[in-house]
Design a protein around this nucleic acid. Structure first.
Length: 275
DNA sequence: ATTATTGTTGGTAG
DNA sequence: TCTACCAACAATAA
């Protein structure tokens, strides 16, 4: 599911459902996902609290509670959030206490007298629900968020210049460089900017960094727009997952390689390699 | 049966 | 302190 646009989408839905809501009850038995707290502690500390604010930075979501606790949510590779409106009789899954396949945690909230359940689902269990009394390092060490903060080209260029060994693609995916850029968004942005993903990060000139910044905005906005549609496309990507197909820009067949252990698709025809 | 998958994290080495 | 690399985590889908 989740890179910046998907997480922003989840944040918006969560805000719609749970902002200013009171937590009636919580349930989980998954010590892995709620670590370092024990499931019992996690649940007890949540109950009775009100959710004041729901923010996002990169791929992390932070729910601020009325007693200054914070619930940090990371969806990992396969996490997502659903809502069960307990009064909804048309939904067969909505019965109270019913649990979904791969449900890992459940938080029942009340707002204006109505209850609903916020359900965290995660088959692979790489996601996290971290309840803390202060901001956690994973949150505070994140670089600028392209959507919330915008991309400062000079700042980005400076960070890239300090990385002569890594590829531009791996550098973009470093959450300290920019928060929220993952494999797909990096692939799409570099294609848009006509930069070969294997280029050394430090070899990208000012113009190139500007093009990459615009490319990131372009792909993030596109993905977000697709998610907000009533019926999302499912594949709004032009390059990722399209190995062998003609480049949408120059018709050269797209190539797939591996970079830093991650699948990378690019166009050898119009993405320029800089070393 | 084999391979690939949208992400972090902790250890190690330099 | 910073960068770079790697294994680990887990469950599918093709």
């Amino acid at each position: 599911m989740p890179e910046l646009p998907e997480v922003e989408h989840v944040r918006r839905r969560l805000a719609t459902w749970a902002r200013r809501a009171r937590i009636v009850s919580a349930a989980t038995t998954d010590a892995r996902i709620v670590r370092p707290l024990a499931p019992r502690t996690f649940v007890t500390r949540l109950e009775g609290r009100t959710i004041a604010d729901i923010a996002r930075r990169g791929k992390w979501i932070r729910c601020l509670l009325d007693d200054d606790q914070r619930l940090f949510i990371h969806l990992g590779m396969t996490g997502w959030i659903e809502r069960e409106a307990s009064a909804d009789r048309s939904n067969p899954h909505a019965a109270a206490g019913h649990h979904l396949r791969f449900e890992r945690a459940r938080i029942v909230v009340a707002r204006r007298g109505k209850e609903s359940a916020i359900v965290y689902v995660d088959p692979r269990r790489w996601g996290r629900l971290v309840l803390a009394r202060e901001d956690i390092p994973s949150w505070t060490t994140l670089g600028p968020d392209p959507l919330a903060d915008g991309i400062d080209v000079s700042l980005l260029a400076g960070k890239l210049a300090r990385r002569p060994r890594t590829s531009i693609k791996e550098a973009l995916m470093d959450q300290k460089v920019l928060a929220g850029v993952g494999n797909i968004q990096a692939i799409e942005a570099l294609w848009r900017a006509r930069v070969d993903p294997r280029s050394r990060a430090s070899a990208i000139d000012r113009t190139g960094v500007g093009a990459i910044a615009r490319g990131l905005r372009w792909t993030i906005d596109r993905t977000l727009a697709d998610l907000s549609r009533a019926r999302p496309d499912g594949d709004p990507f032009l390059v990722y997952g399209h190995k062998g197909e003609p480049c949408p820009r120059c018709r050269t067949p797209l190539r797939r390689i591996e970079l830093g252990g991650r699948t990378t698709t690019f166009c050898p025809g119009c993405q320029i390699l800089k070393r």
